[in-house]
Design a protein around this nucleic acid. Sequence first.
DNA 1: GAGTGGTCTAGACCACGGT
DNA 2: CCGTGGTCTAGACCACTCC
Lengths: 243, 243
Amino acid sequence: MPKKLYSDIYDTLKDEINKQVYPPRNTLPGEEDLAARFDVTRNTVRRALKELQSDGLVYAVKGRGVVVLEPIRDDKVVFTADNNIGFEGLKKFPQNKFIQELSTEVLSFEEVEVDERIEKITSFNAGDKAFYIERLRLFDGNALVVDNSYFRKSMLKDMTVEDAKSSIYQYIRDNNLFKIAAERSTTTVESATKRDMQVLDIDDMNCVGVLTKFVYTDTGSLFEHTQTRYVPNNFSMVDFKSF
Amino acid sequence: MPKKLYSDIYDTLKDEINKQVYPPRNTLPGEEDLAARFDVTRNTVRRALKELQSDGLVYAVKGRGVVVLEPIRDDKVVFTADNNIGFEGLKKFPQNKFIQELSTEVLSFEEVEVDERIEKITSFNAGDKAFYIERLRLFDGNALVVDNSYFRKSMLKDMTVEDAKSSIYQYIRDNNLFKIAAERSTTTVESATKRDMQVLDIDDMNCVGVLTKFVYTDTGSLFEHTQTRYVPNNFSMVDFKSF
DNA sequence: GAGTGGTCTAGACCACGGT
DNA sequence: CCGTGGTCTAGACCACTCC
């Protein structure tokens, strides 16, 4: 019972690419042919092909066709930019099954007023109320990640420490507050601060990876600013783009 | 003289968003209205809106409208995933104007046969011939980046050390060999190796950022595998996604 | 010249949000 | 209920690649 045609076509083609029905470096059948095969219009086929391209499986060349890209042997991937919305998402990643236990410890939970310094960091407006939350993430008992977050208070009604301890995004969903629209992030490597050395199991390393993330609600408001600081040698992030 | 309608609409709307004709947290006019205004069909408007969304400027909510997202105060960005195709691209980034001088030093240049170890790293096929190139990148005389690259030899005709020293991508363009189709990359933070400490100006830091990159040609072949290893505190990468 | 993907039109029906 | 964006059809013309 197909709900979305382009999504069915996407799934089918993806499957056939994996099964080497269309081997790497070959082209897929033309868009017209695919349209005939799936009994849809060319536009709908094109939509499916666009998804495949943004996945990095194929690449369209005008005048030649849609080329199947050679596969890459993937390493274990723990972090991806996608699952950073909610630490809880990590549990669902199949590559992560060697992780037995994930837990979170809330180190700080305070209400602050956004001053100039915080405004500069978070892009919130000075004078706003915000929650500042520092959370330590434990992987099989190892403190590998610490999150420094600011959340706009006005959008969280009366969230408590317990809510923050489990999952803030769960709290938002349960109370039907709003939906998450988008996130912008930057990745850097920085020298470890004293605080990092204090709370993280960082051994003798003196740097951390830093993922700085801005999260938007579906009403266009900046809602969250989080700095995720993580111990080296444990995480990787994946990305794909075409030209 | 418009060549691509959706691109004109994109530019116009982007400009108007920046000028706060449509302020943050407000919605744009409906797609029908925009279609009427630009004298195109709704599909063409939608195409422009999709670009704006993938830029992170707006977000579409069914039943409500296309919401303008609040802007973020951007930090200086040196690296972006986009300009990693070719070190030379860095020079063009306006944020980088404080860098006076960029230069490259070729530390190694050898022809190798892909064995099992290299196959595992690069996803090339065992038995292929490849160039192994190690290049040191100097920023105002500071060795901040070292690139470890493998290139499939069969696609480079008879490239010389001099070609590699200036720009391999320039060489490919000049000789009209092929086009670059896509790139897949992963970002990690790793302990610095002895080699890193040897060639990089890393001071007392013992970690490096690592950008691992696979590059495809427009015929679907994996062509390049590069590990970019960089000194902390100097680079950042930006990313945006919507849900 | 034949075949490919890229752009665009002019309609249609649906699901969802706010009233 | 009405207006919004989401999906889809059935055409058309163009630019490019390859033979």
